[in-house]
Write a protein that binds this DNA or RNA. Structure first.
Length: 162
DNA sequence: ACTAAGATTACCT
DNA sequence: GGTAATCTTAGTA
């Protein structure tokens, strides 16, 4: 969830992808720590926001031990609270959070939020326990050209028309 | 210093 | 289905 200027937005994630740092050619962290991706090397639960294609922002949470560049890309979800806020941020009333860039925009995330602790209750952006998906499917990852065959994309079954 | 490619999205036909 | 918009990083000279 996120909370900026009194506007609360909650999104239930139903699509994520794992990126295993130095063992994963598709990961931003594959070639080691850089100025942009250093948040992924922080402790688990650290927000990593990066600019994609120079236009969009995408949100990850680091998942490995401190010093290890593992991360989880939040690809999509359902807006539970604050839909009107999201509509205003997105400038449309549909497709509110069904993609990495859209999800980040829906939450109002910007590059300045890079590195915040998602598990800190005082943070304006937090990761909180939610409803457990009935079933989760593992599928190949999307939007990458390297190691795209690794089944590290996890989708809640409720998203697949069922 | 220069070039190419990239964890994408919105709008066109 | 195809393309433009636009910033960061890595590889090459």
């Amino acid at each position: 969830m996120s909370e900026f200027g009194g506007s609360e937005v909650r999104i239930r994630l139903n699509e994520v992808e794992a990126y295993k740092g130095s063992d994963d050619p598709a990961s931003h962290a594959f070639n080691g720590k850089t100025e942009r991706n250093k948040s992924m090397f922080e402790k688990p639960g650290t927000l990593y926001v990066y600019r994609s294609y120079g236009i969009h922002n995408c949100a990850n949470t680091s998942s490995g031990p401190e010093g290890v560049g593992w991360g989880i890309l939040m690809r999509g979800g359902d807006v539970l609270v604050g839909e009107s806020v999201v509509r205003r941020r997105r400038g449309r009333s549909d497709q509110l959070a069904d993609g990495p860039g859209k999800l980040a925009q829906a939450l109002g995330l910007v590059l300045e939020n890079n590195g915040v602790d998602l598990l800190d209750l005082e943070s304006h952006i937090r990761l909180e326990p939610g409803e457990t998906p009935q079933a989760v499917m593992a599928t190949p990852r999307i939007g990458i050209s390297k190691a795209a065959d690794r089944p590290w994309r996890f989708v809640s079954a409720s998203v697949l028309s069922g």
